[in-house]
Design a protein around this nucleic acid. Structure first.
Length: 856
RNA sequence: GCCCCGUUAGCUCAGUGGUAGAGCAUCCGGCUUUUAACCGGUUGAUUCGAGUUCGAUUCUCGGACGGGGCACCA
């Protein structure tokens, strides 16, 4: 006959099986997720207001373009933000987490042409659809702050900001060669045509000369660079990309007098020290002096033909031609220091828009000039030799240009100087002669912000025959976008064909005038939208000063790497202008930047409509539930790297949630005592046996690990792994411990498990919180504090090595000294066997971890 | 060509100057029929070479492979 204990155990097991079969309901995300989403919304749980006592945390994800549908890649982005938002709230911060729509842009016009739908209607229906998809993920946005950049209430302030730029002299209209995308039929800013292709559609851009509006972002080049140094929590690669794009280079502008009093050709160089090696000048075909240079020379017609052949070639076309081309102009110039007479060439490799559109050709010390000189039989003269070279290498035998710094030769009074010293000395002499100026040049060009398109914010300017460009008075904003413009897709602004829009009066003289028919680059909307969230319904200011002093800057910004230069540089520029106006605190808008990776298709290919491999949010949530989708996407890899979609992976997430579901509901009675004590189970969680000590160790280690991870590095995948590991430990305890449900440590573990899970799987955590009798939302609980004492162990397994190889393990109390551990180790059989017939030479002891016995 | 990052189990990812973990997959058993949403268990790994060290998956150097950025900007 079995004893009382055995009987009880057997009975307990049977009862447990019966109750689990009868009482535990199925986990149904399709039921609980909409339920909680509705309750949270009714309770207005995630709406944020300024607080006098709580510290703020402004968390932002880049606002999406409302293209119609969201897939699981977008879900990853929003989930990442949501986990952080929920965690920060539990940490006691006042979290602002808004969402909105970058609603102006080309696809709406394309859709209008293709389907005969008005861009506004198309955009509105897409927004409605996408908003519902984002809500289905269980995201905790404050929807009362939603913005739509295409609404007059919003674009009124985009126009206001244009006027601010104009007033500050930062907006101007000019004729220039521009990038033109033949597919999208629009001009593009330089950043938007990187690599010679349209950033949106990848089509090769063409070159067109047009009269357009620009912002003087180049005036802020140095400040944009300097600010990067202070952005410690930005990914290094984004900063590198911005630095490369701005492309600052220090040098000097040198003036070469042209023969016969035609004037002078200015060149920019970073290598003044190589001036004596200049054997030609190379100018771009667009150089303004060119017509005068060739006038009267027999070479004139050849030069004109060459320039004409390049006229429509973009920078990329010209520079990608492997071979450098050029034609002699027939003109000569004089070296400002040596007085040497050198020929002037027109070439395809000098960029008209950079520097002065002219360079001095120093073939011996510049690879491009070297290639060109070889091709065209131009003299190559060495003027810099390597510091350690005994003699000057013969120029005719050089395999390539020597581009490093060195020691000057063949440079008159400057010979024997180092390159660096020569640059200083030669620049000083040139300045004294009036033939040179120290200069800083940038690759960055001014930002082209006008677009000959319909679906954008109209530029609030009026063209008066008498007063030229006159800004629309602020009181007349917004300049409304008329609904009835003909959208045909042909070039030219659609607004031009709407007389009721175009015809107006000049605010200055009252005479008849016309409006600027162009609209603004949508990157303007996204350059300031994050400030509008702060007081989205304010009709008097773009953002309230009180709100901006509390919330700005954005503490944590999440978005794709594709905006490393584009949106993130434009926004920084805007913010610095606004800082100069005293309209925002600080001068950087985004303190911490995080670039999330992509979700790829199951075969590691990019997920896109054209691949036909997209998995929509609706579909994924319907099939698996939002919590499983969230858990899978957070677990599948570190947030910054790409990972492939995996149906088995998401099934794994479901399994994990089901395990928690069963575990918590099966052991729900365990939580009752601590509910009666007002949730203070943690303090009563003192362990009474070894298993409880182990369980508490695990629980508190996980609290610390997950909290640290979310505070700092944000590798959310490791947090999910830690939760899985905790489930294993809790499960093991329940299976092995006879009175699990009476153990305070176990109750603490279950409760903690739910709290740790809450940011990741908010619905199931909330549902179980309620089902286990807790009051209030789990999302308004405090993040648990870990007990440092629980992280200490009574007994530690110290590894024993012999000659660096693991041979055994001994149990020791923490802090045991070397000799005591050695005494214990010697009697371990596997260790003793290794020590036989050997002399112990040395002991290496790492306290509480390891003893290595070196013996031979 | 230059610069940066990475390479851990079959797959996707953790981790550590000293015992290498998770999920999925595999295999075994249970449950019974779940048709890529059951339970328990099992197998299984540090890219290569050299160096530093008592001990290297971890640190250093070099190679291979993969990813990213820059590339006529004077």
């Amino acid at each position: 006959m079995p004893g009382p204990r055995a009987r009880r155990t057997l009975y307990g097991t049977i009862r447990c099986m019966v109750s689990s079969a009868q009482k535990i309901p199925a986990y149904s995300p399709q039921t609980i997720e909409p339920k909680w989403q509705k309750i949270w919304e009714e309770r207005r749980q995630y709406e944020a207001t300024e607080s006098d006592v709580k510290a703020k945390f402004y968390l932002l994800e880049m606002l999406p373009y409302p293209s119609g549908d969201l897939h699981v890649g977008h879900a990853r982005n929003y989930t990442l933000g949501d986990v952080i938002a929920r965690f920060r709230r539990m940490r006691g911060l006042n979290v602002l987490h808004p969402m909105g729509w970058d609603a102006f842009g080309l696809p709406a016009e394309t859709a209008a042409i293709a389907r005969g739908m008005h861009p506004r209607a198309w955009t509105a229906s897409n927004i409605a659809n996408m908003r519902s998809q984002i809500k289905k993920l269980g995201t905790s946005y404050d929807w009362t702050r939603e913005v739509d950049t295409s609404s007059p209430e919003f674009y009124r302030w985009t126009q206001w900001l244009f006027l601010l730029m104009f007033r500050k002299g930062l907006a101007y209209k000019a004729e220039a060669y521009l990038n033109w995308c033949p597919k999208d039929k629009t001009v593009l800013a330089n950043e938007q045509a990187e690599g010679g292709v349209c950033w949106r559609c990848g089509t090769k851009v063409e070159r067109r000369k047009l009269n357009q509006w620009f912002f003087r972002i180049t005036q802020y080049a140095d400040r944009l660079l300097e600010g990067l140094d202070r952005l410690e929590d930005w990914p290094e690669r984004v900063k590198t990309m911005q630095r490369n794009w701005i492309g600052r280079s220090e040098g000097a502008t040198l003036s070469f007098e042209v023969e016969s009093g035609i004037g002078h050709v200015d060149v920019f160089t970073t290598r003044v020290d190589t001036l004596f090696g200049a054997t030609f000048l190379a100018i771009a075909p667009e150089h303004p002096l060119l017509p005068r240079l060739i006038a009267g020379h027999e070479e004139a017609s050849a030069v004109e033909a060459f320039a004409a052949s390049l006229k429509d070639k973009t920078e990329l076309d010209r520079t990608q031609l492997m071979e450098k081309q050029g034609v002699f102009t027939g003109a000569h110039a004089k070296n400002p220091l040596s007085g040497e007479r050198i020929p002037i060439w027109v070439t395809n490799y000098v960029v008209a828009e950079y520097g002065t559109g002219a360079v001095m050709g120093v073939p011996a010390h510049d690879q491009r000039d070297f290639d060109f000189a070889r091709e065209h039989g131009i003299v190559i003269r060495t003027v810099v030799k390597p510091a350690d070279a005994a003699s000057v290498p013969s120029a005719s035998k050089l395999p390539s240009a020597f581009v490093d710094d060195g020691v000057l030769v063949n440079s008159g009074e400057f010979s024997e100087l180092t390159s660096a010293a020569a640059r200083t000395a030669m620049t000083a002499k040139l300045v004294a002669k009036g033939a040179g100026t120290p200069t800083v040049n940038y690759k960055l060009r001014d930002w082209l912000i006008s677009r000959e398109r319909y679906w954008g914010a109209p530029i609030p300017m009026i063209l008066c025959p008498r007063d030229r460009y006159v800004p629309v008075p602020e009181s007349e904003l917004p300049v409304r976008l008329p609904d009835d413009a003909p959208i045909t897709g042909v070039s030219g602004s659609p607004l031009e064909h709407v007389p009721s829009f175009m015809n107006t009066t000049c605010p200055k003289c009252g005479g008849p005038a016309t409006r600027e028919p162009e609209t603004m680059d949508t990157f303007m909307c996204s350059s300031w939208y994050f400030l509008r969230y702060l007081s989205p319904h304010d009709a008097r200011e773009p953002w309230s000063q009180k709100a901006v002093r509390y919330w700005a800057p954005v503490d944590h910004y999440i978005g794709g790497i594709e905006h490393a230069v584009l949106h993130l540089m434009y926004s920084r520029f805007f913010y610095k202008v606004l800082a100069d106006e005293g309209l925002v605190p600080g001068d950087e808008p985004f303190m911490r930047l995080f670039n999330q990776g992509m979700v790829l298709g199951e075969g590691h290919e990019k997920m896109s409509k054209s691949h036909g491999n997209t998995i929509g949010i609706d579909e994924a949530v319907r099939k698996y539930g939002a919590d499983a989708l969230r858990i899978f996407e957070m677990f599948a890899g570190p947030p910054e790297s790409d990972f492939p979609w995996s149906t088995t992976g998401i099934a794994g997430a479901t399994k994990m949630l089901q395990r928690i579901w069963r575990l918590v509901l099966q052991h729900e009675p365990a939580l009752r005592p601590q509910l009666q004590s007002g949730g203070r189970a943690d303090v009563d969680g003192r362990p009474s046996d070894a298993a409880e000590t182990e369980l508490r160790h695990s629980v508190h280690a996980k609290i610390k690990q997950i909290g640290d991870e979310l505070d700092d590095r944000m590798h959310l995948n490791t947090c999910v792994a830690a939760i899985m590991s905790l489930i294993n430990d809790v499960d093991d305890f329940a299976a092995k411990h006879e009175h699990a449900d009476e153990s305070p440590a176990f109750a603490e573990a279950l409760r903690t498990l739910l709290l740790l899970l809450a940011p990741f799987a908010p619905h199931i955590a909330e549902e179980l919180w309620e089902r286990t009798g807790h009051e209030g939302s789990i999302h308004q609980q405090h993040w648990p504090a870990y007990d440092p004492a629980a992280l200490q162990r009574a007994s530690i397994a110290v590894v024993v090595q012999v000659n660096g190889k693991r041979r055994g393990v001994v149990d020791a109390p923490p802090g045991l000294d070397e000799n005591a551990v050695f005494e214990k180790a010697k009697i371990v059989e596997t260790v003793a066997a290794q020590l036989q017939n050997k002399r112990v030479r040395k002991l290496v002891y790492v306290k509480d971890k390891l003893l290595n016995i070196v013996a031979n």
